[in-house]
Design a binder for these strands. Structure first.
Lengths: 155, 155
DNA sequence: TTGTTTGCAAACCTTTTGCACGTTA
DNA sequence: TAACGTGCAAAAGGTTTGCAAACAA
């Protein structure tokens, strides 16, 4: 089991996730706009998951005039392409983070008091999930795990 | 691994979950009202998780004049007492189901196409989760697992 | 130029809250 | 009766959508 702490561990092979996402958008034939690049850059820079509102606020405070709708539309586009992963922390707000390279995979510890989110990775857990996935009458394409409790500071 | 199919497997020892919940409410000192009993009964009768809106609609179509606010307030009360579990299926709507007896525990398969939810139970998965919980700097009090994919009908 | 993308504002949906009225103990 | 619970309506978020203007190819 491993706590995920590195900021830019969303790497796809040698290139960064942001470069990979940009290329995927070009390949798909969508236009390359400053707004989309800004959302991709914001996602790449964040430590863990962030909500659309948080991304919007950060870009705005950085001088951008981006609208909240464009943030949602870009996140939906990236999510549909599998480039971002949606994380539900249980407070009714959707959060997003860059999808990791194939094979890499992490889950979240959510503090029920302060809302802090920490990522972790565990092979035993992944194996147990795959064992379940192999035995159900579902074509399982993904999974989420959230452990809830009190973080070190709140305990 | 076991698919959870029985309707009333929320039993607390010999008595049903609804009886247990009613007694817990009395013990807590809250008043016993027709509205709360109706919400408890609706929860006990549902096969898997249901949203507040669904519970409200079902009670209304059964002749009740219950308001949506009372459904939310009762669910919040029961959730705070640990009598109901909140389930996030990823569509931004909170769903609720009776909490199971100690030790019993299930998770969900969510169809990304039709939204169907199926419950399952797996000891290996529980063990893997507890192994992680023991090793993190979090006081883990609960966890959720959701496997996403296509159900038998949608595949 | 031509179709795509954007920001704004309004619409939508779920959930929460204020308040006067009803109910329980 | 005195405190608690309820229904309604309004408010409060987060998210989506319609549309005219801005933009990329």
């Amino acid at each position: 089991m491993q706590i995920v702490t590195a900021r830019h561990d969303h790497s796809h092979a040698a290139i960064g996730w942001d470069t990979h996402a940009g290329e995927a958008l070009t390949r798909k034939g969508t236009r390359r706009s400053a707004v989309r690049d800004a959302v991709v850059a914001a996602l790449a820079a964040q430590e863990c998951c962030a909500s659309a509102q948080e991304i919007h606020a950060r870009l705005r405070s950085g001088g951008s005039t981006i609208g909240i709708a464009s943030v949602y539309r870009t996140l939906e586009l990236l999510h549909g392409m599998g480039l971002v992963t949606r994380v539900d922390t249980g407070d009714g707000v959707a959060r997003f983070e860059p999808s990791q390279a194939d094979g890499e995979h992490h889950h979240h510890l959510v503090c029920t008091r302060c809302g802090a989110v920490q990522a972790f990775q565990d092979d035993g857990l992944e194996q147990a999930i795959h064992a379940v996935a192999d035995r159900v009458d579902f074509e399982v394409t993904g999974h989420d795990v959230a452990l809830r409790g009190l973080c070190g500071s709140c305990r």
